[in-house]
Amino acid sequence: MLHLIFYIFDMNSLAAMLEEIGIPGIWTGWLSLVLMLLPAVISFNYAMRRLGRQWKNIQRLVYPALIIALVHWILLDWVWQPAMVHLAPLILAWILRYIGRSRRQRTQRSMT
């Protein structure tokens, strides 16, 4: 959302923003934002209880949103290194989560 705020201030008018919407580097950013907004909007306990199993499926929209955000960044700058620097903490968190999950599964299998 902070990136969007800077974009709005940089463009300084809705007309200028709409003029750019057809540029692939721009519409990929908007698409990524929309895909991230839905999981963000339902990220609270009541929504989790109300949606049941569907809640997790909606939360998984962040994965394609991440890929589209990376495409957005690359299309705008044609440089992948800054995008990877910003994505590195998320990728590291996913790797650690995967390792933790694998260890728990191995522990559960060895106990049975």
Score class of each variant (00 low, 15 high):
47 A>N: 14
4 L>E: 03
25 G>M: 13
34 V>H: 00
94 W>I: 14
86 H>T: 01
54 Q>S: 14
102 S>W: 11
44 F>K: 10
57 N>Y: 12
44 F>I: 06
5 I>Q: 00
18 L>S: 06
15 A>Q: 07
1 M>P: 04
49 R>C: 12
107 T>V: 14
47 A>P: 11
25 G>D: 05
4 L>H: 01
71 V>H: 00
23 I>C: 05
65 A>Q: 02
16 A>M: 06
64 P>D: 07
40 A>S: 14
98 Y>L: 14
108 Q>T: 11
57 N>P: 14
111 M>F: 15
33 L>G: 01
37 L>N: 04
42 I>Y: 07
29 G>V: 00
55 W>I: 12
52 G>D: 03
67 I>A: 06
84 M>E: 04
38 L>D: 03
102 S>K: 10
33 L>K: 00
57 N>I: 13
39 P>Q: 05
84 M>F: 10
101 R>I: 08
55 W>L: 13
3 H>Q: 08
108 Q>H: 11
36 M>G: 09
38 L>T: 10
74 I>G: 04
103 R>E: 10
3 H>T: 02
62 V>W: 04
62 V>A: 09
75 L>E: 13
89 P>N: 05
10 D>M: 11
107 T>Y: 08
79 V>P: 05
20 E>S: 10
100 G>R: 06
109 R>M: 09
13 S>Q: 03
47 A>H: 12
10 D>F: 15
101 R>L: 10
38 L>H: 07
54 Q>K: 14
40 A>F: 11
40 A>R: 03
63 Y>M: 10
11 M>H: 04
26 I>F: 11
111 M>N: 08
104 R>E: 12
70 L>Y: 03
73 W>I: 00
19 E>P: 09
21 I>N: 05
9 F>D: 05
67 I>S: 01
50 R>V: 14
71 V>Y: 00
16 A>T: 02
109 R>C: 08
71 V>W: 01
54 Q>I: 12
2 L>M: 14
75 L>H: 04
112 T>W: 14
106 R>V: 11
105 Q>H: 06
23 I>S: 04
102 S>Q: 13
23 I>Q: 03
35 L>G: 03
75 L>A: 11
66 L>P: 00
62 V>L: 07
33 L>F: 02
65 A>K: 01
34 V>A: 02
87 L>F: 05
108 Q>V: 13
75 L>M: 12
49 R>K: 11
17 M>L: 06
91 I>A: 15
110 S>W: 13
111 M>P: 09
11 M>N: 04
59 Q>I: 15
15 A>R: 07
6 F>L: 07
95 I>Y: 02
14 L>G: 06
17 M>F: 03
31 L>A: 10
90 L>I: 15
72 H>I: 01
68 I>Y: 01
10 D>I: 08
93 A>M: 09
98 Y>F: 12
13 S>L: 06
41 V>L: 15
73 W>R: 00
49 R>E: 09
87 L>S: 03
112 T>V: 13
19 E>N: 14
55 W>E: 11
21 I>C: 07
37 L>P: 01
66 L>D: 07
16 A>Q: 01
30 W>I: 12
93 A>D: 09
34 V>Y: 00
105 Q>C: 09
66 L>E: 08
62 V>I: 12
57 N>G: 10
108 Q>G: 11
9 F>T: 12
66 L>F: 15
68 I>R: 00
16 A>N: 02
108 Q>N: 10
17 M>Y: 02
33 L>N: 00
83 A>G: 10
98 Y>N: 09
1 M>T: 00
34 V>D: 00
64 P>E: 07
